[in-house]
Simulated assay, not measured.
Amino acid sequence: MIIVMKSGAPEAEVDRLTEELNQTWGLTPEKIVGRYKVVIGLVGDTADLDPLQLQEMSSWIEQVLRVEQPFKRASREFRHGEASDVIVNTPNGPVHFGENHPLVVIAGPCSVENEEMIVETARRVKAAGAKFLRGGAYKPRTSPYSFQGHGESALELLAAAREETGLGIITELMDTADLEVLGEVADIIQVGARNMQNFALLKKVGAQDKPVFLKRGMSSTIEEWLMAAEYIMAAGNPNVILCERGIRTYDRQYCRNTLDLSVIPVLRSLTHLPIAIDPSHGTGWAEYVPAMAKAAIAAGTDSLMIEVHPNPQKALSDGPQSLTPDRFDRLMEELAVIGKAVNRWPQPEAVLA
C-alpha cells in the first residue's frame, strides 16, 4: 500500500504521518522522494486496512493505493510510477543507472587471469567509453574441474585496475563468507544466475549498502526474478539493478542461451528498477554480441554488460563469447549511433585545457 502526498506537502507533515503510521498502526513506512511528489510506502500487514480511513489522516494526502503485485518494493506502483536512480560512486565520479539517464556500459573479461591482462583490458575498455570493469574473482562453473577463479588474489588485481583507470568494479559474490573482502573492492556486487534464488545470499547482500547487480536465473520466470530482488530490498538495500543474461530454452545448438529482450518493456511496466542486458552470456558467441547489444539499446536498456578479452582463444573461461578490444572499440562506435538516436548515449567528457 502507498500513500501519495500532494505536491508541496510540508516535510514536517510527512514526518508526522510516518511516525503515526509506525507507532499507532504498527507499519514500516518508507519515504520515497520523487521529482514532483513524496510517496510513503507502507510495509506490513495492510490487508485489512481501509484506504479511506488512511486518507482521513491528513489533508495533504492525495490518494491511498494498494500495491497489487507480490513484489511490493520492486513494483513500479510502490514509487507511484517513477523510475529508480541507482547511483554508484566510482573513482571517476558518480555513475547513474536508470531509465532517465544515459546508457552505462560495463566491460571486461569473464575471469581475472593476471595483472597485465586485467589492467590492459581496463585501459582499453575505459578508452572506448565503458564506465565499469567486470571481472570474476570467484567463478561458478558447471564442471568442478573447470577454472574457478583466483579468489582473493584476483580481487587485489581488480583493485589495481581500478587504481590505474578509475573505473568502477563489478564482480560476483558466490559465498556469504567472502562478502566483506569482496565488498572492499567491488563498487557493485553481482549475484549470478546460479545464485538468483540463494535466499541466504540475497539477504546478506541486502543487509549491506553496495548496489547489487542481480542476474536472472537461467530457468527463472520474470516474477521469480523480481521476487529475488524483493528479498534484497526487504533486507534494506534498495539499490538493485536487474540483468537479463539469457534463459535456457529447448534450442541450444546455435546459441548458448536465448536472450529475452522482451523483458525490457515488460520490466519497464512492472518495476522501477534499472535494467541491464548481457548479450555475451545471452548468445554465447562473440559474432552475435554486437547485434544483440544494438537491439537492446533500441529496446530501451539502461545498461550493457559485454565480455572483452585481449586474447579470447586463450581465455580461461568464456572465450568464445568475448570480444577483442579492437572489436569492442568498433562496437562502441556502432552503439553510439543507436544510443544517440534514442537519446541515451552519454555526452563526451569535457577535456580541460
Rank of each mutant, 00 (worst) to 15 (best):
R248Q: 14
Q321L: 05
W285E: 07
D326N: 07
T258I: 00
G246H: 07
E307D: 07
P279W: 15
Q313V: 06
P265H: 10
I247M: 07
L304I: 14
K294E: 10
A298P: 08
I247V: 15
S269N: 12
G319P: 06
G319C: 04
L267I: 01
S317R: 00
G300I: 12
G319W: 01
R252A: 12
M292L: 15
R245V: 00
K294R: 14
C243L: 11
V308P: 00
D302W: 04
I241P: 09
L273K: 02
L273I: 06
A276F: 08
R252D: 10
S317Y: 00
A291I: 05
V240E: 02
L304E: 05
V266N: 01
Q313W: 11
V266D: 06
L259C: 11
K294L: 11
E307N: 07
A286Y: 00
A315G: 04
T301D: 11
R245M: 00
A296H: 02
R248E: 04
S303D: 05
P290H: 12
N257V: 02
P312Y: 14
V289Y: 05
I264F: 03
H309Y: 02
P279D: 14
A315R: 02
I277K: 03
V266S: 03
E307P: 11
T258H: 08
T249V: 15
S262I: 03
G282C: 14
G246K: 09
L259I: 09
I241R: 12
P312G: 11
A315Y: 01
V263K: 02
E244N: 13
H309D: 00
G319Y: 02
S269C: 09
F328Q: 02
D318A: 02
L323R: 10
S269D: 10
P310A: 12
Q253V: 08
P325V: 08
G319L: 02
S322N: 12
S322D: 06
I306D: 00
K294Y: 07
D251K: 12
L270N: 04
K314R: 15
C243V: 11
I277M: 15
L242M: 13
N311D: 15
F328A: 05
L267Y: 04
Q253T: 10
M305K: 10
L267D: 01
S262F: 09
T271E: 00
A299C: 11
Y250R: 01
Q313S: 15
I297G: 13
T283Q: 05
D260P: 07
Y288I: 00
H309W: 03
L261G: 09
T283R: 02
V308T: 13
I247A: 05
L323Q: 06
A296M: 03
Q321E: 12
F328T: 04
I241G: 05
T271W: 03
A298G: 12
S280C: 06
I297L: 15
N311A: 11
H281I: 03
A295S: 15
A291Q: 14
A291P: 02
I275D: 13
